[in-house]
C-alpha cells in the first residue's frame, strides 16, 4: 500500500466513523461538528484525487495503479467454504454473488458474526439485517461466486 492509498483508506475509515456518530447523536452542536469533519474529509479526498489524476497524466501509461482494486477471482461454493478463517485461512463471505474479505473486519471476530461463520454465502442473512446500510462498500471484494 502506498502513502496515497493509506491516506485514502484512513479518510474513508474516519468518514464511516463520523457517519456512525451522526446516526446516534441528538445534539445539534455535535452534528455540526461532525458535518464539518465530513466536509474536511471530502476536501482532503479532492486533493488526493487531483494528485492521482496528475500522476496518471504524468506517467501517461495505462498501467498506473488504481486506488480501488477490482475483484477478479472466481470461487465455487466449495472453494469458498475453505476460507473460513481457521487454521491460517483468510475469512471470506459472499453477498449477492461477490466474495468479500472479512479476515480483519472488527464485526467478524474469530471469523464469526452473530452466529454466522465465514466461508459461506450470507446473502439472505445480510439482506434481513443490513439492507440499506453502507456496509459492503467498506469491505474488500476479492472475487465472484460462480455456480
Amino acid at each position: 500500500m502506498n502513502d496515497r492509498e493509506f491516506y485514502v483508506n484512513s479518510i474513508f475509515k474516519e468518514m464511516h466513523s463520523t457517519i456512525d456518530s451522526l446516526y446516534v447523536t441528538c445534539n445539534s452542536c455535535t452534528k455540526n461538528t461532525l458535518l464539518n469533519s465530513l466536509r474536511k474529509n471530502i476536501s482532503d479526498l479532492s486533493v488526493l484525487l487531483q494528485g492521482a489524476q496528475n500522476d496518471v497524466q504524468k506517467n501517461n501509461t495505462a498501467n498506473a495503479p488504481d486506488i480501488i482494486s477490482s475483484p477478479n477471482k472466481s470461487f465455487t461454493r466449495a472453494e469458498l467454504s475453505r476460507y473460513n478463517g481457521k487454521n491460517g485461512n483468510p475469512a471470506y463471505v459472499a453477498v449477492n454473488g461477490t466474495v468479500y474479505d472479512v479476515t480483519n473486519n472488527a464485526a467478524w471476530a474469530a471469523a464469526t458474526h452473530f452466529g454466522l461463520t465465514a466461508g459461506r454465502d450470507v446473502t439472505r442473512e445480510f439482506t434481513s439485517c443490513h439492507s440499506g446500510q453502507p456496509i459492503l462498500s467498506r469491505l474488500k471484494a476479492v472475487g465472484k461466486i460462480v455456480t
Partner: peptide, 13 residues
C-alpha cells in the same frame, strides 16, 4: 448468548 458464540476461539487466522 447463542449469537455471540463461540466465546473463545484459538485457531483463527
Amino acid at each position: 448468548p447463542d449469537k455471540m458464540k463461540p466465546f473463545i476461539s484459538y485457531n483463527t487466522t
